[in-house]
């Protein structure tokens, strides 16, 4: 269910929907085009395509 306060924002990879003020750095979204993006900056709000993995990623 979409929160009534939600807004949609274009990311360059499709649009994402969220409640203003609730977004955190590093948060992941899936756009309406099915692309996973992550929040890389809050002011201004900036999304980047989220890599699936990197060589040094892990537990």
């Amino acid at each position: 269910m979409v929160d009534a306060r939600s807004v949609s924002v274009a990311t360059g990879f499709g649009s994402v929907t969220f409640v203003p003020g609730s977004v955190r750095l590093g948060e992941l979204f899936v756009t309406d085009d099915g692309v996973e993006v992550e929040v890389v900056r809050l002011e201004p709000l900036t999304f980047a395509e989220a890599p699936e993995e990197d060589e040094d990623w892990g537990e």
């Binding site: 590093g26 992941l28 989220a50």
Partner: peptide
């Protein structure tokens, strides 16, 4: 300290 807000974080 994190670089991606996953379910764990």
């Amino acid at each position: 300290l994190y670089d991606r807000l996953r379910a764990e974080e």
